[in-house]
């Protein structure tokens, strides 16, 4: 009897720890709301502008973090997303610019395709390095990070490639059913990634790969092909991030993804992934991205200099790791 009670107690704490990121998100939203009510007599949560700003910032983080989640679950990392997104951004802007001032939907679609293809090439190279040449993903993708960065800057001539195109502007700043298009894009991609990771054989193999690569190999799965696909997915979602950036700001920027890399990695780990692989969910990453976006926007809302967001997000990352570790301690370690 005692044994049963203790088990229930443990699993309660466990589910609390699993849900901590949700609780944390609610907590910081509550904090900023209380701050707004008491200090300025206004509201934080119930203003469309605030919600939209948070949602768009979260979307931009998410687009880099979605494919990355799959890579991290498989026990790898992809640092090159910072510049596969930048490369896509520059390529898209260059194609649209080449299309002339009144470039139509066709050119915009072609530009999007070219940008995503450029990002996919980075993904294929990453996968080839990791799967065929057995280069550790941290080093391999750090290499392609540099190559993609250089390639993007060379193509852009070291400057921002500004464009003037109504269609692109509309896509980046318009709304669909009242929701900003970047948010809708990120959410649709999140749903697809969730389906792939949670409900497909590919997803099951991804988890198994993170826990014990030998188990997947022995089960007859083509591990090399699987790794290449993971890195291509990661590069493609990052490329979508570059696409949304270009459309939002009517500019292709090689460095557009760089400041988001840290936040994207943080979102995945805040969302419950583990550095050793085998753990993590898309829903967790979505919450992680929103936690960071709320902190970013909330601190500025409170009138603090924007630099405080680095401190705050850094602290949240450390808390996330501590929670992850205590989870292992309670469950009894990951054998």
């Amino acid at each position: 009897m005692d044994h049963v009670v203790q088990r229930n107690g443990t699993s309660f704490v466990k589910s609390l720890l699993n849900a901590w990121s949700w609780l944390f998100l609610v907590l910081i939203l509550g904090f900023f709301e209380v701050y707004a009510q008491t200090q300025t007599g206004s509201t934080f949560l119930f203003r469309v502008y605030n919600l939209q700003s948070i949602a768009v910032a979260a979307s931009q983080i998410l687009l880099l973090a979605l494919g990355l989640t799959l890579v991290i679950v498989a026990g790898h990392i992809d640092l090159s997303i910072a510049f596969s997104s930048g490369l896509a951004s520059v390529v898209i802007a260059l194609v649209i610019r080449a299309g002339g001032v009144d470039a139509g939907w066709g050119i915009v679609a072609l530009a999007a395709f070219a940008g995503l293809a450029a990002a996919a090439i980075v993904g294929v190279v990453n996968g080839w390095l990791v799967a065929w040449l057995a280069v550790p993903s941290f080093i391999g993708t750090l290499g392609t990070y540099g190559v993609a960065r250089g390639a993007a800057l060379i193509m852009a001539g070291g400057a921002t490639v500004s464009i003037r195109n109504e269609h692109a502007r509309e896509l980046g700043n318009g709304t669909l059913l009242g929701f900003p298009i970047p948010l809708v894009t990120a959410m649709v991609l999140a749903l697809i990634c969730h389906y792939v990771l949670k409900h497909t054989r590919f997803g099951a193999h991804t988890y198994a790969l993170g826990a014990n690569p030998a188990s997947v190999e022995r089960a007859g799965v083509d591990v090399k092909r699987h790794l290449i696909m993971l890195f291509v997915i990661s590069a493609l979602t990052a490329g979508m991030g570059g696409l949304i950036y270009t459309f939002r700001f009517s500019a292709g920027a090689a460095n557009s993804g760089e400041p988001i890399l840290l936040y994207a990695v943080a979102a995945v780990f805040i969302g419950g992934a583990s550095l050793t692989g085998g753990q993590g969910t898309i829903s967790g990453t979505v919450i992680g991205a929103f936690i960071i976006a709320v902190i970013q926007f909330g601190l500025v809302f409170c009138g603090l200099p924007p630099y405080w967001q680095f401190v705050a997000v850094g602290l949240v990352i450390i808390v996330a790791v501590l929670v992850d570790q205590s989870k292992d301690r309670i469950v009894g370690g990951k054998a």
């Binding site: 497909t200 030998a214 188990s215 997947v216």
Partner: peptide, 29 residues
């Protein structure tokens, strides 16, 4: 053991030969 520690016994039993069912026209584990 060639087990994937983070998966349940069912998925370990079927690893590499997982069963799926169709929902909304898509395969689900």
């Amino acid at each position: 053991l060639a087990l994937a520690d983070n998966l349940d016994p069912g998925l370990n039993l079927y690893l590499g030969r997982e069963r799926t069912i169709r929902r909304f026209g898509l395969p689900f584990l």
